[in-house]
Amino acid sequence: MTEGVIRKSYGPPPLSEDEIFRYAGCGRPALEDRALLKSCLDEVLPLLSYRVAYRRLPLIVAGDCCDFFLFSLRSEKLSLRLQNCTEGIVFAATVGFEIDRLIAKYSRISPARGLMLQAIGSERVEALCDAFCEEMAVSEKKELTPRFSPGYGDLPLEAQRKVDSVLNLSGTVGIYLNESLLMSPSKSVTAFLGIRDQG
């Protein structure tokens, strides 16, 4: 009925400098911004690791309740997203701790660099999610819903605990929840996907 947790490592997913500049709040990057980005990328890219853990679960959506067999969630927005899906995927993705160390360091001595590293981390983990979702869609030969994370819309952050209980986040991908249910490493994503039957 339920499959166990599967772990995967990836190579670096395709990188979008435009996305990074967008995260950095930099509409039209100047020469200096580009130089800063390049030097940050040179420093951080070799330190990143790209890891995902996921689990396929049966899914029944009824009203605002999404029942994943091992747990259920109440959220109108999520139910809407997962409509007509009979299976779901819960996954967690992270680019690791090293970037947090650099962010901690540079936020003390060079906030510009700290900001750029924040932006790079956000772009990298989202790109990892894209790579994972694309691969799932191909291997399932089915359409996947866009991903939906705890904290989106009316899905409370508390859903993180359920993700943790089915994925064993610290054991499988090295993601830890803190008291406020935020994740360490900070550049991590947890999310739900629906698998849609293409009828």
Partner: peptide, 8 residues
């Protein structure tokens, strides 16, 4: 001017 430049 954007945030990274402001910070630099």
């Amino acid at each position: 001017v954007y945030l990274p430049q402001l910070l630099m």
